[in-house]
Design a protein around this nucleic acid. Sequence first.
DNA 1: TGATTGCATCGACCATCATCAACACATCTA
DNA 2: TAGATGTGTTGATGATGGTCGATGCAATCA
Lengths: 132, 132
Amino acid sequence: MMVDAITLVNGRTVTAEHAAVVGRTNAAVCCPSVLAAPLDARSAGQLARGFGALGDPVRLRLLSMLAAAPAGEICVCEFVAPIGKSQGTVSHHLRILSEAGLVHGDRRGKWVWYSLDHARLAQLRSALDTQP
Amino acid sequence: MMVDAITLVNGRTVTAEHAAVVGRTNAAVCCPSVLAAPLDARSAGQLARGFGALGDPVRLRLLSMLAAAPAGEICVCEFVAPIGKSQGTVSHHLRILSEAGLVHGDRRGKWVWYSLDHARLAQLRSALDTQP
DNA sequence: TGATTGCATCGACCATCATCAACACATCTA
DNA sequence: TAGATGTGTTGATGATGGTCGATGCAATCA
């Protein structure tokens, strides 16, 4: 039960824990670019977590499916068959993506619908920009 | 109820309950573009190697140092002290970056000078572009 | 030639990860 | 209420990865 559910301005809801992770991420990764200036160890660690979440074929395919979804969201049950992994494994990868701030899960009834966090993707993309 | 199972155009079935929550037509629920896995396993694997190489703080700092180098290249001996790892570890990370196509090593005399592959970086950056 | 320097590689250790089966929990239906 | 379904979690296991010290190899120098 989502006792800690938080309603966002866009109408979606996330758990308090989830919001805390995203909030911390947004605040911390306030634009460190890998290529613009020398990275300190802390910033490097935070960016590495984001890129590490992208460093798995299964997770890239999950993101790819989300990006191609007309409605911008897919429920977990729709992932399992195309990915070809067990439901537990898919849930595991979705959790890693969620903790990295790349996707958000929204429970509606029995199903949980996942959608991309385009802002977080833009952050990681800009981290690879040569220009500050 | 189970007798209300709906057969989608792709042969899969969902319950009426499921379709109701989705709030869309059968065609919308079973959108083939989502189930067709836009990112095939091979492409996902290649991209994952690239992002996986970025998924380590030490390697991000190596890339950052290279980007900030006035001459655009740094010899291995100049990496070791700032990174704070053993020479063998630094060499290990440079090899991973090299195999991922992110850097190139050029031996001149006793020294090996590493430089960024900006094209490969741009390729990974564009892979995060959610706009087609 | 022998010694030194810079870099790559190897072996070993430990941590982390990917995966699955099984289970736990919440939600919905009959 | 009991049963079915969707999802998250746990435990176990094999694979992968990060790190270091030691070693190997090539280039340079005395």
